[in-house]
């Protein structure tokens, strides 16, 4: 597995994927341009653990390429743009953010070829009274056929934060399927009651729900699952 640990002063070249690849990204305190180009017929999976970043991340997906990103971050104001530029290309992007400061997370997909799909799941837990924004655009260009686009955005407020979601679907074609959803709220009261009714303290119940919420849907194997769980442990109310 290609493994990249990047901090503020590290230089990072463009990444061109010419064979099936897994990348582990650990980005800490940085503000960089990161370009990842996935060539025809290639599969890429990314496991990304970030702390305090404002990166501009650009993906370019070529024909028949497959990209799965599992991203867990603390305090993230990245701007991510995914251009799906090849027929039959597919994106599955799962971002989960633990928010403690004022942050604005921007995500854009642009589908410009037929038979493409983008599935984008953005989850955030805002632990404080600071502001968090999800700005999410899913664009499908004119005259596209048989495309699918889905974006699911949720923010759980554990402080008294100011939370915003802008879930845009920008679609100008009839032969596509597109859906979006947005939710801002607390953990459901009846769920907390259920867990606590089995003897679990409120703070432990919230921790269980936090992990479930942040890691739900991600596609993690044993090693990554341990790393992602540890990341939450290390950054939970800390």
């Amino acid at each position: 597995m290609l493994k990249l640990n990047v901090t503020r002063d590290d230089k990072l070249d463009d990444i061109i994927i010419t064979e099936d690849t897994s990348i582990e990204l650990n980005l800490v305190n940085c503000n960089k341009d990161i370009n990842i180009d996935v060539m025809d017929n290639m599969c890429l999976e990314v496991f990304e653990l970030d702390i305090n970043t404002k990166n501009k991340i650009n993906y370019n997906l070529r024909e028949n390429s497959r990209v799965i990103v599992n991203k867990l971050a603390r305090d993230n104001s990245d701007i991510t743009t995914v251009k799906i530029d090849g027929e039959n290309a597919s994106l599955k992007y799962y971002s989960s953010i633990m928010n403690y400061k004022n942050n604005e997370y921007t995500f854009k997909t642009i589908q410009s070829k037929d038979n493409t799909e983008s599935i984008v799941v953005n989850h955030c837990i805002n632990f404080t009274n600071n502001t968090f924004k999800f700005l999410v655009d899913s664009k499908i260009n004119k005259k596209m056929h048989n495309c699918y686009s889905m974006q699911d955005n949720k923010i759980i407020d554990l402080g008294n934060g100011h939370n915003y979601i802008t879930p845009n679907l920008l679609v100008d074609s009839e032969d596509i399927e597109a859906e979006h959803s947005a939710y801002i709220g607390k953990f459901k009261k009846d769920v907390l009651f259920y867990l606590m009714s089995r003897g679990i303290k409120k703070e432990d119940a919230e921790m269980l729900l936090t992990k479930g919420f942040l890691l739900h849907n991600m596609i993690l194997t044993g090693g990554e699952e341990t790393d992602f769980n540890s990341f939450i442990d290390n950054n939970y109310n800390n």
Partner: peptide, 30 residues
């Protein structure tokens, strides 16, 4: 609620809810 449970009270609910992202193993071990 949790203190009552730890003292030995258990309520088997009429309509047990589902909990997204929390496995039965994590739940029961916790």
């Amino acid at each position: 609620v949790d203190e009552r449970s730890r003292k030995g009270i258990f309520l088997s609910m009429q309509s047990p809810i589902s909990v997204e992202g929390v496995t039965n193993r994590e739940f029961l071990r916790t």
